[in-house]
């Protein structure tokens, strides 16, 4: 039975890549061990509480304010990343300059760096005693220990997502679109916003979504630069830690679950938007 199903999918009955069973097995094992089972454990852990308890935890004022801080900062950070990630990808794809390879490699640094290290060094730089922070302090803007600082940390951890999403699409983007716009009399600005941006939009959206989700979940780097003052600069993951510190596992998972659901809905929305936009690319 099962074998037939596989064969039906392949007209010639010969698989292009051998070892389907093996690779499928590995896929299932990886998915199961590293994603599904841990996620399921969150649901199980949270299901120990009644719905009323759950909503009580999740809608308490402090938790709500944590969500507000996390979501607003992550959203802003993802927007900033969208703009600057696009510019970075553009420069890396469209121009040749010495040190380009090194710069390209550096994009991934935020992935490689332990987030706590990132958080500590960002705080060091952006506090009113740090190099960058001191300059801003002079014009009356404090960065570290404010929501601006949180946003900056989220920008840092999110930028690779946007660059790496946009880069391949930009590489494959046919120059004819730009040339066509030019031949119709359009200048650079109009060409960029009306012609190139729509082409990059699906990839940009994907990068935005990933950066946003990462920002929401980010703890290690944000917690150092955040200040963590309740109702002001407390992020939702910090409240999870706070619940864990009180050995309130189910409360912690309840907060996590709400975060997870929002992230999931967001990714779902972005994915369906992408699928919708994919049909345009057939032309």
């Amino acid at each position: 039975m099962e074998q037939q199903i596989v064969k039906v999918k392949n007209k010639k009955g010969v698989r292009v890549i051998p070892g389907f069973g093996l690779s499928m097995g590995v896929t299932l094992a990886m998915l199961g061990c590293f994603i599904l089972i841990p996620l399921a454990s969150i649901f199980i852990s949270a299901s120990k509480m009644s719905f009323q308890e759950f909503t009580e935890v999740v809608t308490s004022r402090q938790v709500m304010s944590g969500y507000l801080v996390s979501f607003s900062c992550a959203f802003l950070a993802a927007l900033i990343n969208g703009v600057f990630g696009l510019i970075l990808a553009w420069v890396l794809v469209r121009y040749e300059f010495p040190g380009k390879r090194i710069m390209d490699g550096m994009i991934e640094l935020p992935f490689a760096l332990p987030t706590a290290v990132a958080g500590i060094s960002l705080t060091f730089l952006y506090s009113d005693q740090g190099w960058i922070g001191a300059a801003f302090d002079k014009i009356g803007i404090s960065i570290a220990y404010t929501r601006i600082g949180i946003t900056i940390a989220m920008v840092f951890v999110g930028i690779p997502f946007v660059v790496r999403s946009v880069q391949p699409v930009l590489e494959k983007l046919d120059r004819q679109y730009e040339e066509a716009a030019m031949m119709l009399g359009a200048g650079r600005t109009r060409t960029f916003f009306k012609v190139i941006l729509p082409e990059l939009f699906p990839a940009l959206l994907a990068g935005f979504g990933l950066a946003f989700a990462r920002g929401i979940g980010e703890y290690g780097s944000v917690v150092f630069i955040a200040g963590n003052i309740p109702f002001k600069t407390q992020i939702a993951p910090l409240l999870i830690m706070s619940k864990l510190e009180q050995y309130k596992y189910s409360d912690a998972t309840a907060i996590a679950l709400a975060l997870l659901l929002v992230s999931f809905l967001l990714m779902l929305f972005i994915n369906s938007l992408q699928i919708y936009m994919q049909k345009f690319s057939k032309a």
């Binding site: 046919d174 004819q176 679109y177 040339e179 066509a180 716009a181 030019m182 031949m183 119709l184 009399g185 359009a186 200048g187 009306k194 012609v195 729509p198 082409e199 939009f201 936009m277 345009f280 690319s281 032309a283």
Partner: peptide
């Protein structure tokens, strides 16, 4: 004179129609 100032119409090999318009 840049291409966008020459007043020329151009039909590309693959038409290069703007896909999202």
């Amino acid at each position: 004179l840049p291409g966008n100032k020459r007043g020329i119409g151009f039909v590309f090999q693959n038409y290069a129609l703007f896909r999202y318009m």
